[in-house]
Design a protein around this nucleic acid. Structure first.
Lengths: 227, 227
DNA sequence: TCGACTATTTATAATTA
DNA sequence: TTAATTATAAATAGTCG
């Protein structure tokens, strides 16, 4: 090759290595081109230098992907195809399950009942009655719990209110028949006299009036179009 | 290179082309090996001869796929990555929708109601009552239709039965007080006399007795474990 | 069809500018 | 540094057995 026989082993000097890489890369690309033209072959050549830079040669009217695919087919080590097919299968399964679930929901909405027989309809009806009973019970449980909580709150507030009233009246009495330590407590008593009585008016019914059906978020249709 | 400068153009003689291909292929593979060792580079070399045979060189501890992937990433022409990600996304969407559907079904089964408020429970209850009404109506419709069909069948059979009885009695009368054309009809009359009366016993109730709930196929859980 | 063998060309490592 | 030069090794086209 050059001045004196060279040994084929790693060039330790990084700069020289890069120089040699550039030169030899050019050489190998030239060889690849020649092979393409002379022998009517298709060549895909990918090279990554020790610094991570990528260089390539690919025969005209041909792609790396194309050659790589052919290589994979030939060597029978295509790992993508099975993976891809599995995913497709998986998607189909999910779609099927989705449709079943939708159908069940529709039936539980009283729709799409045409292909159910008498027995199935009777079963569905009984099951739904049982289920609606569960919901009703839960509803009562919730409203009971809420009512209890409100009662407690009301009681609590009443107690606070009463004790404040009591305290106020005591102070008021002190004010009209001042005790020995009047001077020191005057300011705080004035403060209470100016306190806002509306502070004890609270809302007992947190929006329990209109119970419109069907929260779109929860019971709407989950549309999904697949490509 | 050899005996006299060679021109880089396709070798027309097929045999010579193959010979040259073999020699040069060995050469380029050797060069690729040298590049790998000397310059610490990674090389992927795929060659397809004009006869379709595939030869390769790949640097040790490295795969064609690996290098090809890196090349695609670098050149930004990876068509698989986005596709793959889309599929993953799609799968996730389907799973999410599935879970929502399942939750709705559970709630319509009277389960998993803990995170519903009073209003939602009331809405659900009313909706379920409306739905169960639909199912009930459908059930009545089916049973009514079935009953009508049976009635019609019974009526039909009765009519047939009566007309046969009538005919039989007429024939019987003819037998006891033979008419002028007795000879010709004797055989067929005997045939009727031997007819089986049980032929008119039919089943009116096609298995309407036990209406067990829950067809596993329709209302069971659709389990799916994903890898 | 296949190696083995040259006569040459080609590639390139080392050197120089 | 990088680019051009050069001496030499390597590659290989054509040939022969």
């Amino acid at each position: 090759m050059g001045r004196g026989k060279i040994e084929i082993k790693r060039i330790e000097n990084s700069t020289n290595r890069q120089v040699t890489y550039s030169k030899r890369r050019a050489g190998i690309v030239k060889k690849a081109k020649e092979l393409t033209v002379l022998c009517d072959a298709e060549v895909s050549l990918l090279m990554v230098s020790s610094t991570g830079k990528i260089h390539e040669y690919i025969s005209p009217s041909c792609t790396h992907k194309n050659l790589y695919d052919r290589y994979q087919q030939a060597s029978g080590t295509d790992l993508w195809q099975p993976h891809y097919e599995k995913m497709q299968e998986h998607l189909q399964k999910l779609k099927d399950i989705n449709n079943k679930l939708r159908k069940e929901i529709r039936q539980r909405h009283g729709e799409d009942l045409d292909d159910l027989g008498f027995q199935q309809l009777r079963g569905l009806e009984q099951n739904m009655e049982k289920s609606v009973e569960c919901v009703r019970n839960r509803k009562f449980h919730v409203i009971t719990t809420q009512t209890d909580t409100f009662k407690k709150k009301v009681k609590n507030h009443e107690e606070t209110h009463n004790s404040l009233i009591r305290e106020f009246e005591e102070r008021d009495a002190d004010f009209r028949f001042p005790s020995l330590d009047f001077e020191g407590d005057y300011q705080s008593t004035i403060g209470f006299a100016n306190g806002n009585p509306q502070i004890f008016a609270f809302r007992l019914q947190p929006k329990l009036q209109s119970a419109d059906l069907q929260d779109e978020e929860t019971y709407g249709s989950y549309g999904l179009s697949l490509s």
